[in-house]
Amino acid sequence: MPAADIYSPEPNLLERKFAAYLARHGADDSTPEHPTAQRVQKIRRITRWSIGLSALAGILSGGIIGGAEIWMRYSLFDGMDDLGWRDTWPYWAGFYAFVGVISAIEIALLYALALGGIARITRHSGLALSQDGGHALFSHSLARAALEFPSPQVTIYGIDPYAYVANWKLTALNIAYKLKVGVSSFILRVFLRRVAARMAIRGMVPLFAGPLYAVWNAYIIGRIMSEAQMRTLGPFAVDTLMSEHFDTAQGLDATEKRVILHAAGEMLTRGRDAHPNQIYLISRLRHALDHREDISLDWDALRHHLPELDADGQARVLNLLTVSCVIGPGIHRHQLALLRSACADCGASLHADRVKKLRKALMRGEPVTRAAVSRARSPAAGISHAS
């Protein structure tokens, strides 16, 4: 089954529309090389513009809502000091309906900014988003990033990415994601009016609305664009890893192939997220290793074969684990623990700070080369930086 169908087996209407838009407006043809420094600069510029425009939308929205409140308070109700709630509630009900309309327009604009910005980022990166073949994974994953949808709760080639996550936590995360943009933005507006208005700054609340909405919008779009950059640049790190280590993978013995697949699967579960970059990595590994079946994950049993591998084999596995660790939604402590134990099994030691720096370098648009990955651990007997 294609990786795209596994990642998003039942996309809703919005996801399909967003994915189709990105496929039409993204890069026409994929480029195998990591984006050049000039293209990375364009991507950063697009990100800054998207964040700036979202902040401007917040200022305008806050100004309109704050201005409407000032007009109601001092023109319609003449200060409202002597009016009870029975006299004013119909007007405030209308005001909150007005706030809801303005908020809905603003949220729609934020989604449009995110979608347009992501389309331009992928076009400059050279990542093809065709709806046909494996690249459909990219269009759907970026569509979900633009919509701030969580990663789907799916099984990846027999691997459950959420095997270590309690059911109640999954439910709570889903609710939190649904509250992120739309409901949370409206709650912010109600909070400013009903809670902050009771404080000493009551009369100044409308003046704070614009800057506060601007900061909130910038935070939301900043998160979206940051994740979009990771989902855009991460596949190039995967492609580099595959070309450096797995182009001739057909010559590997069955044991090493199993170690490689189980290492990638275990790193996926340690991240507690079905991240598209790691799904893409596992998909490419299955193809390179000619593995058609599902993976019955048992890393505890397979890790004991690590000391038996030769220097090149150990370097392959450790570099694979390192790249998989840095291309996900974040570096989880359990992923670092897995990488540290694998290094120890190979007689090496991990530098966690360098792994984190490697992720930051990827986010800055720097290529993830073999040399850069190898520097995340100290040389060991049999494993050199050149491996």
Rank of each mutant, 00 (worst) to 15 (best):
D5Q: 15
E10G: 08
Y21E: 04
D29T: 10
H34R: 05
I43F: 07
I65N: 07
Y74H: 13
G84T: 04
G100S: 13
V101P: 10
I105H: 03
L109C: 05
I118R: 03
A119E: 01
H124L: 01
S125H: 03
S125A: 14
A136H: 00
V154Y: 09
G158Q: 03
G158P: 05
Y162E: 05
Y164G: 01
K180Q: 15
S185P: 00
S185F: 09
L188Y: 10
L192A: 12
R194Y: 13
V195Q: 08
M199T: 15
A200N: 09
F208A: 15
A209L: 14
A209N: 08
Y213L: 14
A214T: 14
R223Q: 14
E227H: 07
G234M: 04
P235Q: 05
D239K: 04
S243T: 11
T255F: 04
E256Q: 15
G265M: 06
D273C: 15
H275S: 06
P276S: 07
L281F: 01
L289R: 06
H304N: 11
P307A: 02
A311S: 09
D312P: 10
L320T: 08
G328F: 07
G330H: 08
D353Y: 00
A371C: 03
R375P: 03
R377P: 01
I383H: 00
